[in-house]
Design a protein around this nucleic acid. Structure first.
Lengths: 205, 205
DNA sequence: ACAATTTTTGACCATTTGGACAGAAAAATA
DNA sequence: TATTTTTCTGTCCAAATGGTCAAAAATTGT
């Protein structure tokens, strides 16, 4: 029957709730700033209960980070040969921008971790991530060599896409303060238009 | 004579030492993560001594943030009419990039503060900073209208300069991990070359 | 040299916080 | 229904940490 499955589902749901609460807390205050009590409150349960499911605050943080990493680099994984290389890069940029819009908490959590030295991601950055980026950089370099896009350093191109798209999520407070409240609603449409135009100009041969 | 001056100078020096130590600590671990003891150690004095000079950890943090803000926006202040608007913008970009290279700790401290909601800078972001950016955006918009540079949204152009230059300081761990150790030495030269080419392409009419 | 002032620190305190533990409540199993 | 297992929480504890305080040490002024 499904009696064991039922329990498992409940467990999985509880863990989901805790992870969601923790993500919010970590994005707001970082690993140190976020307290177990705050996470428990956001999750609607007691502090020992949170510990019961994850063992420690650190374990929640690490698990979140690891599972998010995969989601985070997926758009780059999907960058591949295309009828139009420029369109492929623009699509990648747009997916990253949409992730900033839809997952600002995830973006902030990553940013905070890396900003503070990425103590629990260093191996993956210089391992998997470096391999992935090198791979895609080679692809882009190929397009450059064939004259399909401008000749630019592909690694720095990727950095620039990361920087510009994540800026809107990570520093949203600053962006919104500078633009003023009126432009807040259409912000991501503006950003999309600007970045598209910007990268088209920079990349066409 | 200079007997009172002498004391004042010593006081000033002590404060300088503490501020430098605190900057390092805050950049590494953020406001919460940095402890008074760590700051005191880095400054080579006892914990109560640090408190004696600044009253509280928070006071050090706030003072650092305020004094750094002025330095931080100076390059934008200096953006003005020029024989060549494109050159003026490139100069601005380069000054920002150099600040990332020379003051990574300051960059990280700002980034962390804004990332976490900028609780003690909000008024200045939507006040002074917004006014300054609006002013310079108007200048750039003028250049656009005159056909001296491409027609792009000047606010987002400024954001893109902030994002791309600060990325190299704030996320240096990631950048260096992805590029590998060999490219670390010439990193900022690479970045300068890339960004210059990039912005020239994007901005020329 | 002596008094007054400033600087410096060791010892201490109150609060916060991660998390251990025993046992209650609930659920599954029999 | 009785028993076993799982879930959940009130209570407590030890460590970390921001900050106080009294007094020592150094400096300054006379």
């Amino acid at each position: 029957m499904n009696s064991p499955r039922k329990v498992t589902r409940i467990q999985r749901q509880k863990r989901e709730v805790i992870l969601a609460a923790a993500l919010e807390a970590f994005a707001e205050d970082g690993l140190r700033g976020a307290t177990l009590e705050k996470i428990a409150d956001k999750a609607g349960m007691s502090k020992p209960h949170v510990v019961y499911y994850f063992g420690s605050k650190d374990a929640i943080y690490t698990e979140l980070l690891q599972s998010l990493l995969e989601v985070w680099v997926q758009p780059l994984r999907d960058l591949s040969e295309d009828a139009d290389p420029l369109a492929a890069i623009l699509t990648y940029m747009r997916r990253k921008l949409r992730m900033s819009q839809d997952m600002p908490r995830e973006s902030k959590m990553f940013a905070t971790e890396i900003l503070h030295g990425a103590p629990r991601m260093r191996p993956q950055l210089s391992g998997d991530l470096k391999a992935l980026v090198d791979d895609k950089a080679a692809l882009i370099a190929g397009w450059s060599a064939e004259g399909k896009i401008a000749k630019i350093d592909p690694h720095h191109l990727i950095f620039s896409i990361w920087a510009m798209t994540q800026h809107y999520a990570d520093f949203d407070i600053q962006v919104e303060a500078v633009l003023g409240p009126d432009r807040k609603a259409g912000l991501y449409d503006e950003a999309d238009a600007f970045l598209t135009e910007f990268f088209v100009r920079a990349l066409r041969p």
